[in-house]
Computed example of a mutant assay.
Amino acid sequence: MDAHSARGLAFAAGPTLAAAAIGSLASRRAPEVYRRLAKPAWAPPPGVFGPVWTVLYTAIGVAGWRLWTRRAGRKALGLHLAQLALNAAWTPAFFAARNRTAALAVVTALDGALAAEIAVVARRDRAAAALLAPYLGWSVFATALTASVGDPAGPPGSTVRR
């Protein structure tokens, strides 16, 4: 493997695995917290999240690899890293800090960063943009869910009690 390919692998795998690891660590109590939330009828069961994120993180990593190997440019690579940083920030805000307001701000910023990344990337690599599209769909769904859930003992928008 040449140096460019090795750096590409590091770019594709490193930030994606870091976001996944942060999310995993911050969501250790997620099933308990999620179960206690006042959720809309369309909220998925807790068992859906793991398999969905496994598929999404794989697609994100492949998209990152494509961006690097096709020399998508600093803007595309920067947006890719920015959305992964926002991805990593949501789970600690929602499940660890239990601050729905902060989590909603983070996931809304994630939606914007992902939409911008897809728009920039689509000009260079339609396949990479297509790999990110389901992630944007899931993120928008997560935004709606984050906005809809509440502490059973408090008003929507409140911080979930421990």
Rank of each mutant, 00 (worst) to 15 (best):
N99I: 04
G157K: 02
R124Q: 09
G73D: 11
V107A: 06
H80D: 06
S139F: 02
A133S: 14
D2V: 03
A133G: 07
A130R: 09
G73C: 10
G78C: 11
A153W: 01
S24Y: 13
R71D: 14
A105R: 14
S158D: 06
K75S: 13
A122T: 12
A13T: 13
F11N: 10
A147D: 00
V48I: 14
Y57P: 00
L131E: 01
L132A: 09
A63Y: 09
F49Q: 03
R100V: 12
G14D: 11
P45Q: 14
P40L: 07
S139I: 10
A103M: 12
L37Q: 04
K39I: 01
Y135C: 00
A13N: 10
V140L: 14
L86W: 03
G112R: 08
I22H: 00
A19P: 11
L86V: 02
G73V: 09
G23W: 10
T69W: 02
Q83E: 06
L81P: 02
G154N: 11
F94Y: 13
A85F: 09
V55A: 15
R98S: 01
K39E: 03
P31G: 10
R7M: 12
T101A: 15
T69D: 10
R71E: 15
P46A: 13
A116F: 01
A72I: 00
L110D: 01
W138H: 05
V107W: 03
D111V: 14
H80G: 06
A63T: 10
A82S: 13
L81V: 09
L114A: 03
G137N: 06
A119C: 06
W68A: 11
A102S: 12
A93K: 07
A129H: 11
A76H: 07
V62I: 15
R71C: 08
K39Q: 13
G8M: 02
P45A: 14
G137I: 02
P15I: 03
A82I: 06
L9W: 15
T91R: 02
V55E: 07
A63R: 07
F11I: 09
T69P: 02
V160I: 15
E32C: 01
E32Q: 14
H4Q: 08
V149C: 01
R98G: 00
G50N: 10
A113P: 08
R70S: 12
L131H: 03
A133Q: 09
M1K: 04
L25A: 15
P46R: 08
Y34H: 10
R100D: 00
M1P: 03
G61K: 05
A116G: 09
T54D: 08
V149F: 09
P156G: 05
S139T: 15
V55D: 09
G23T: 11
A76T: 12
G23N: 12
L81K: 05
A153K: 04
A116Q: 03
L145T: 08
P156Q: 07
V62D: 07
L86I: 03
A109Y: 05
R28L: 09
A43C: 14
R7G: 00
A72C: 06
P44L: 11
T159A: 12
T69V: 13
F49P: 02
G154H: 13
L67E: 10
V52T: 09
P155W: 07
T54R: 11
